[in-house]
Amino acid sequence: MIELFDVHKHFKEPVLRGVSLSVPAKGIYALIGPGAAGKSILFKIIAGLVTPERGSVRVNGEEVVGRREREMMDLRRGIGMLFQNYALFDLSVAENIAFPLRRLFDFSEDEIEARVAERLERVALPGFQDRNPASCSGGQKKRIGVARATIARAPIVLYDEPTAGLDPVTSQKIYNLIREEQRAQESTVMVISSDVNGVLSIADRVGMLHKGRLIFDGTVDEARVCPTPEVNQFVHGLTEGPL
């Protein structure tokens, strides 16, 4: 479970203004909102990569804010992450996916190989072990990222814009993959996305950030009939409105 209370973050301007939300365990929480709403920063705050000026962030009951970097390292072992820009290293696909296992755990090479092969099968990229991510398409890189984010079977998985720049068919395949992975591993998943239709098709709950504030938090059905003008416009993709 992920809980945020009154989280504030400034850079040159305020990015998050008192965000409070709760991501229930073993479900998918979609965080939507227009560009520059503060979604990615919130994602990094949850993982302890960025420190807020004010507020509290609890992951599985443990406070994140104020932890020293070394203490954060222990907490991050339980969090899988997919980054918007893939964050794949200049290594082979297999080495990228196996990276968390080799660095954080004590698995034998045979087990690592088997797990990598299983992950690649799962994300529909069998035989990609020796390829370099640079030679893969955007969709393939996202799938490699999903495989890496889930290989350690972390109880919490965060996905930042998992379908940015992808065509609708590939996007929906990625969302379906996220849903299947969540069900298979019974993990708590948070997906940040600007692709409303796609992400709402798999989400259990949804929140909307706008100008650093959480202006909606509820179920997908509630989001579709929300009277708040910004939420209504964003969820239905209307051109007329306050956004």
Binding site: K44, A47, L49, E69, M72, M73, D74, R76, R77, I79, M81, F83, Q84, N85, Y86, A87, L88, F89, F99, P100, R103, L104
Partner: peptide, 15 residues
């Protein structure tokens, strides 16, 4: 840094 690989390392609990 700009492709978030450094954040990726930190997220994987690697200094």
């Amino acid at each position: 840094v700009v492709t978030e690989q450094i954040d990726g390392l930190r997220a994987l609990a690697i200094d």
